[in-house]
C-alpha cells in the first residue's frame, strides 16, 4: 500500500534562502503526526509547500500524495484531491458571506472531482449540523468570512470547513496560537471528531500543550529545515522537559 503523503528529501528556497534542506516524511491513512520544533525550523514552510502557496521554490526532492506528484498541481487541485490546510492565521474576506464561500468552495471541489453539486437545502442542512456541533452560531455564517471573528471563532471556522470538505489529509498549522484553553478545547474536540481510519492529520505546533488534546501517533522534531528526531507521543513530553536546544547541534 502506498503512503497517503510522502515527502522525499524536500529542499525549498524562499528568495535565495534555503529553508528546508532535505526533509522527508511519510504519513499513512489513519495516522496523526505531530511536527514540533522551534521558531524558524521550517514547520510552516512545509505546510505551505504541501498546500501550494506561491512564493516557495522547490529546488529538490518530491511530494507524492496518493502516489501522484503534488508539486505539479495548483492549490485548488490539491484541495479537490483531499489536501486541507488549516491556516495559522485565517484571513478575513470582507464582502464574501461565509455561507456563500462555503458553498462555492465545496461545489468547486465536487465539480473538480466530477461529483454532482450539492443542492441548496442539502447544503444548508449539512452546514447547520456541523456548525451546531462546533458551537458556531448561524449569525456567524451570514457575516463576511472571518470578519470580526475572534481568534477562537476563526479556528472553529477552519474546523467547520474541514468537517464540510472531508479531506483525506488535514494539516493543522499552529492551531493553538492565540487560543485560550476553552477555545482550544472546542477546536480540538472538533478535530478529534474527524479522526478516522481513512484520514490522516499532520499537527504542526510549537508547544506540547495542543498534543494533550489531539494525541498524536507519531512525533517529529524539526530543526533548521530537517526532521532531526522521530518517535511516539512520549517524545513530545520529553521535549517539554528538555527543550529544543539539544537538537540544534544535530541539525547543524
Amino acid at each position: 500500500m502506498s503512503a497517503l503523503l510522502e515527502v522525499r528529501n524536500l529542499q525549498v528556497r524562499v528568495e535565495e534562502r534555503e529553508i528546508l534542506h532535505g526533509l522527508s516524511l511519510t504519513v499513512n491513512k489513519g495516522e496523526v503526526h505531530a511536527i514540533m520544533g522551534p521558531n524558524g525550523s521550517g514547520k510552516s514552510t512545509l505546510s505551505h509547500v504541501v498546500a501550494g502557496k506561491p512564493g516557495y521554490e522547490v529546488t529538490g526532492g518530491e511530494i507524492l500524495f496518493k502516489g501522484e506528484d503534488l508539486l505539479k498541481m495548483d492549490p485548488d487541485e490539491r484541495a479537490a484531491k483531499g489536501v486541507f490546510l488549516a491556516f495559522q492565521y485565517p484571513v478575513e474576506i470582507p464582502g464574501v458571506a461565509t455561507m456563500t464561500f462555503l458553498r462555492t468552495a465545496l461545489n468547486a471541489q465536487r465539480k473538480a472531482r466530477g461529483e454532482s453539486e450539492y443542492s441548496t437545502p442539502d447544503f444548508l442542512k449539512k452546514v447547520r449540523e456541523v456548525a451546531a456541533s462546533l458551537n458556531i452560531p448561524q449569525e456567524m455564517l451570514r457575516r463576511g468570512v472571518n470578519v470580526g471573528f475572534s481568534g477562537g471563532e476563526k479556528k472553529r471556522n477552519e474546523v467547520l470547513q474541514m468537517a464540510l470538505f472531508e479531506p483525506s489529509l488535514c494539516i493543522l498549522d499552529e492551531m493553538d496560537s492565540g487560543l485560550d484553553i476553552d477555545a482550544l478545547r472546542i477546536a480540538a474536540d472538533g478535530v478529534n471528531a474527524l479522526r478516522s481510519s481513512e484520514r490522516a492529520m499532520v499537527v504542526i505546533t510549537h508547544y506540547q500543550r495542543l498534543l494533550n488534546y489531539i494525541v498524536p501517533d507519531f512525533v517529529h522534531v524539526m530543526s533548521k529545515g530537517r526532521v532531526v528526531k522521530s518517535g511516539g507521543k512520549e517524545l513530545a513530553l520529553e521535549l517539554e522537559e528538555s527543550g529544543y536546544a539539544q537538537f540544534e547541534d544535530q541539525a547543524a
Partner: peptide
C-alpha cells in the same frame, strides 16, 4: 486572500 480561496478549492 487569493491563496486562501484557492486552498479551499476555488480555481
Amino acid at each position: 486572500l487569493l491563496f486562501y480561496l484557492r486552498a479551499r478549492g476555488l480555481p
